[in-house]
């Protein structure tokens, strides 16, 4: 995999995680991260991810990869949260 694409995927994933953790509906932690700060850092990481994609990919392809990666992560994160919450529930 191209290094810039790998970096873009990583930065965007980190940004999505920050945005998800700032949501009051997140289930990864007992309490959400401070909303404004986590969202701001998340958005900056997303911008960094898109910029990394643009180093290798042409703008339409970079945008498509970016948007689909975001959709995938934002679908998976709540399911992962539900699994973690269920596991915590069983333990307690």
């Amino acid at each position: 995999m191209d290094g810039n694409v790998a970096l873009g995927l990583l930065l965007a994933a980190s940004g999505c995680a920050g945005i998800y953790l700032a949501s009051p509906n997140q289930r990864w932690r007992a309490a959400p991260w401070p909303g404004r700060l986590a969202r701001t850092v998340g958005v900056l990481l997303l911008v960094g991810g898109l910029a990394a994609f643009l180093q290798t990919l042409r703008p339409p392809a970079a945008t498509f990869v970016f948007v689909h990666w975001l959709m995938l992560l934002f679908v998976l994160f709540p399911y992962l949260g539900a699994l973690l919450a269920a596991r915590r529930g069983r333990r307690s």
Partner: peptide, 13 residues
């Protein structure tokens, strides 16, 4: 577009 990573993204979506 985007090669193999995108194929996996599409597969899971």
């Amino acid at each position: 577009y985007g090669g193999t990573p995108v194929q996996w993204i599409y597969f899971i979506l």
